[in-house]
Nucleic acid binder design. Sequence first.
RNA 1: GGGCAGUUAGCUCAGCGGUAGAGCAUUGUCCUCACACGACAAGGGUCACAGGUUCAAAUCCUGUACUGCCCACCA
Length: 874
Amino acid sequence: MLEKTYDPRPVEEARLASWDAAKLSHSEPRDGGRPYTIVIPPPNVTGALHIGHALNNTLQDALIRHHRMLGVQSCWVPGCDHGGIATQNVMEKQLKAERVDRHALGRDAFLERMQIWTRDCKKTILGQLHRLGASLDWQREAFTMDEPRAKAVYHAFKTLWERGLIYRGERLVNWCVRCATALSDIEVEREERKGALYHIHYRCEDGSDGIVVATTRPITMFGDTAVAINPKDDRWKHMVGKKVLIPFIDRAIPIVEDLYVEFELGTGALKVTPAHDQNDWELGERHKLAVIKAIGPDGKLTEAAGPYAGLSREKAHDQVVADLEAQGFLRKKEAHKSAVQTCDRCGSAIEPLLSLQWFVKQTELAKAPLQALDAGEFEIYPKNWEKPYRDWLVNIKDWCVSRQIWWGHRIPVWYKDGEEPLVSLGSPGALWTQDSDVLDTWFSSALWPLSVFGWPDQTKDLAYYYPTSMLVTGYEILYLWVARMQMMGHAFMGKPAFPVAVMNGIVRDKSGKKMSKSLGNVIDPLLMMDTYGTDALRFALMAQAHPGKDIAFDEQSVVGARNFVNKLWNSTRFVLMNLPETAPVGGYKLEKLSSCRLETVDSWILSRYQATLAKARASLDAYDPAAAAGALYAFLWDEFCAWYIELAKSRLLGIDGEGKENARTILVQVLTGSLKALHPVMPFVTEEIYATLKAYAGESAQFVIKGGYQKLDGDWSNPEIEKEMSKVMSAVTKIRSLRSELGVPPGLKIKAFAEGPFAQAVIGKHRAYVSSLAQLESVEAVCGGRPPRSAAAVADGVTFFIPLSGVVDFAKERERLAKDLVKAEGDIVKCEEKLCNLRAAASAPEQKVAQAKEQRDDALARRDRLQETIAVLS
RNA sequence: GGGCAGUUAGCUCAGCGGUAGAGCAUUGUCCUCACACGACAAGGGUCACAGGUUCAAAUCCUGUACUGCCCACCA
């Protein structure tokens, strides 16, 4: 016998062990049919998994299990990402805590520590995925910096180099002073900060009045090489051709004319600093201006800043502003909001800096992904992300791939005096030195769908598993990762890496705020699993995972899911209690049902069951697990448990052998089929239950996955029966409601009388249903006469009278009826309106008219009955 | 500045052309022989606002107002 309450922990441990032992999640290439393949978005080795990972991976696991249930060979590849800057930052923090300087430690020792950290971190992460029930193909574990992946990176770099798509050049790049490295454009975030706009006067070299420029960053003036004005601006026309002097350092710079300059902004005169601003850089190119660096890679001012050289950006700013003011250069200071660029890894301000970097040309590589999108060979769910994706590819800029950090794939380029740079995996000789930079971590991530299957080698795996079937990831890395995988996929395999990408939302806290350590609102998935069970966490996440939508995560949702797991557990307990100790040969099969003993509720639950399985299946196929989870939850709780089990009880306890067998069969089959449908979302409890039920269901598969989904023979859909049952349910609900309002004790059996057009239909055929569910001692039909001093429950086409025998307050009862009357009258008006509308419209379908008429008549009958009752009670 | 979402019960969200739904929370009654992680019932919403299309709009269209996200070179 099962325990009264489901205890997840021992079940999860035992199930994981048995799945592992059976290697259920392992796949090998085989003949016939395409496999269903997903590569995991490899988590960075920066620490433990968070709740967002739980969502992302549960979604993938549900899809993988779904396909295994369908009998499709499925492969889900696990692995981690070395995580470049993000991971190096973690290590630097550790070192800082130990008061160790990275440079004093040295590159080799540092990397050694990184390797140890990575090893531990991978273990943690993969362990957590395992605990989550993720049915990854553990033998295929990959890491973006292991040897096979390093080979792929090198090969990709070399190939792109040979195709002329990689170049090295001095460009203005996003420089993070804190991380001391260049960043690509999409690793930069923008943040609106309050600052000031400083109007600064530049004297004229010839001693005449000069010009006023406006800037948010006065310290960049030491890098100015011109002041630009609009050629149509009469205010400054007279300055053209003259030279002005930069304050404090008195370097003379020319006034140039350029249409880029706008009249209204600032003073209409723009100081031009090509070394520290993208626009100024372009303007400088047009006018052949000199490039002077005022700020160095360390964030300190350079020699060009004269007396301010060596000061940090912040100190220099304060000092320069103070001096400008003191010496009368500052003409005006106004409040100003400006977009400050920050590093997405450490949050410090980005400095546009001129430096020598490696780039990947993007325009050519973006062509094939664009075509694939247009041809429908690649789709993004939800669809509205396709436009931003396209726009990004269309307006794409070259990708700066070199990073001045230590943790990553070292750029495979070697230099020697007097020789051309050489691309080589290993050292070409003692006199050669390797480029000290490493590649952007996304370079290796971009190759992930290829590299995990052995590319560049033309392996059997690659041929079998590539292209993958789909990808699940967050929309925040749509460009950073998804687009680049597609570019690489096309570039090296001539095919998209996957035909579908599903965007999962961000898991936020319950008030919708992003989770962060500093806010203290982080939810630890492990804690949720420990407290409520893994199935509960998975179900809670899936029940809210509408495509592309963020989730406001409330722990209460896991409580609800835990309760549902327990409900499932207990309904199984009930079913088992009502089955013989040993299963009959062949089990309880639907085809063995005795059709002459099939009751309304049997046909009804089978009809609902069929509809629910179809809905769950279609929802998963449409990447909407929330809809699938919702359909199964509602079916099992509100239909199967609330009605079917209740109505089956009398037969299970009764003496009618065939009736009992019918009920047992349906209980076993519907429960088994439903838990199989739930298996992709809650694998543990369903596996456990399946083990106890399968013999009764006539199945012998060792695991749910092996058995596959329930195959439903025949069409059980039955709208007529559903309608009939809804009348019974309406009757029961109305009587219960009346009892509750009248304060009739729940256990007390009472007499009832029924009247109305459907009275015979309901109490004739379904007297037993109504009596047992509404706790009636008896229910008889009456014609025309209503019993004296009785209350009425007006249901769908039937009115039930309950003699009150002096227990009830008549005034209170009248009040209640008056309320119902208002509702009934409102309904009549609405139905009349609708009917009127439908009649007026030539196009209105006849079926709709009939339906509306029925609704109207029902409301009318209800009103009459209520009025009558009120009269009786007055 | 451009684009994309969202605005429905106290909270979190479904519904997306025909009489307003769920879960949680709240209230009441029950430890009824599967489950108190339960049962039964109750209260609670002019579906952001303004126009329009339609016989009929929470649902389609157009604007407006907030909220969030993405993108963008404005000193």
